[in-house]
Computed example of a mutant assay.
Amino acid sequence: MRDEVWRELVAAARSGQPAWVVAAAGMALPGLRRAATSLGPTRDSADLDAELLTGFLQALRTADLTGPYVCGRLIAAGRRAALRLRDADVRHACVSRNGFWSAPPARPWDHPDLVLVRAVTAGVITAGEAALIGSTRLEQVPLATIAADAGISVAAARQRRHRAERRLAAAIACGDTSPPASVPAR
């Protein structure tokens, strides 16, 4: 019975009406949450969540509906997409010893928005790259949302952000984004 309901829901979602796509994602949300949790602790969970949802939505459009466990197979497709992203990015490698996970380093004393503004002023990154980093890293806007607004793929947005972050990290390490001497440190 459950598979029949899912077959009907997927068929409606494939009809081109966005409300049915949203309904399918909403119905799968408990399973998508479990899948996201199973990916383990990461620094960039928003990216993995976006990739999980993207994989789910792609499977929603293309999956074979004849077999059993329709919803489970859609969620599994999303999980595989998220795992590919996680495993391809070495930054997600967490070190565990005695059951404790390493934590991301504490933020520097300076406000991240000000670091981005100074990086743009210094020509390290563009204003668009600063907005991309700020939106996805600081405001937790999903990368898929930013990519859709820009009319590019999630992979392209991820690559742009990665390149800008590498330049930004190098500039921070060299002191190129330090506050001016006239501004006291907080």
Rank of each mutant, 00 (worst) to 15 (best):
T37I: 12
R160F: 00
V90G: 13
A81D: 05
I133G: 01
R33C: 11
P108Y: 09
I133C: 03
G134P: 01
G26A: 09
R86D: 07
Y69P: 04
A131W: 12
G26S: 09
S178N: 14
D110E: 15
G31I: 09
A28Y: 04
A181R: 13
A106L: 11
A157C: 07
V154T: 13
A36M: 10
P184H: 11
F56H: 07
A36F: 07
P41Y: 00
R118T: 00
G72C: 11
A11Q: 06
L143M: 00
Q159V: 06
S153W: 05
I172A: 15
F100V: 11
A63E: 14
S135T: 03
V183G: 09
L143T: 04
T126H: 01
D89F: 03
L138H: 07
G55C: 10
S153K: 06
R97A: 15
A185P: 09
A171T: 03
L114N: 05
R166M: 06
A77W: 02
A28G: 09
G175C: 11
R91W: 08
T126M: 03
L83K: 12
G31H: 08
L60F: 04
P104K: 08
R118A: 01
D89P: 05
V10W: 00
G123E: 03
D49S: 12
A144H: 02
Q58V: 14
R73E: 11
A11E: 03
L168V: 01
R166N: 01
R163A: 00
D176W: 07
D87P: 05
R43D: 15
T66K: 10
P68H: 12
T62Y: 13
P142V: 05
A77I: 08
A170R: 08
G67V: 09
R33Q: 12
A150K: 10
S38G: 04
A35Y: 04
I133N: 01
P180W: 05
F56I: 10
P179F: 10
D47F: 13
L29W: 14
A81N: 05
T42N: 09
G31L: 07
S153N: 06
L48Q: 13
M27P: 03
Q140V: 12
A88N: 10
A35P: 00
L132W: 07
